[in-house]
Amino acid sequence: MKGFRYLEDVTTLQFDPARCTGCGRCVEVCPHQVFAVQGRKAELMDRDACMECGACAKNCAARAITVDAGVGCASGLINEWLQERKLLKGIKTGGCCQ
């Protein structure tokens, strides 16, 4: 992605080359060009560009990719925290991702 870059060393993306079959699906679905197929396997080209959308893991038939995907906005995460601690029982909060 040109012009924008987020924090380094935070992504939970994990790639296991031993399982990779080189099908190229991860290259096809990633909007940030994190993967490229080199020879007969995929390779991580730009791990820190990952936005953890989960498209690659979801579409990897060989299960070579894992990532903790999910909502990425502050209010969404605060709502999650509150709900996990049962502080929001019955209260419906506004937000973009309902």
Partner: peptide, 23 residues
């Protein structure tokens, strides 16, 4: 700052783990 941080939910490049760290 809070509302700026909240905009991470609308972008096309921020990650959940990054937002957690920021928070």
């Amino acid at each position: 700052s809070f509302y700026g941080l909240n905009f991470t939910g609308c972008t096309t490049y921020t990650s959940r783990s990054g937002v957690k760290k920021e928070m």
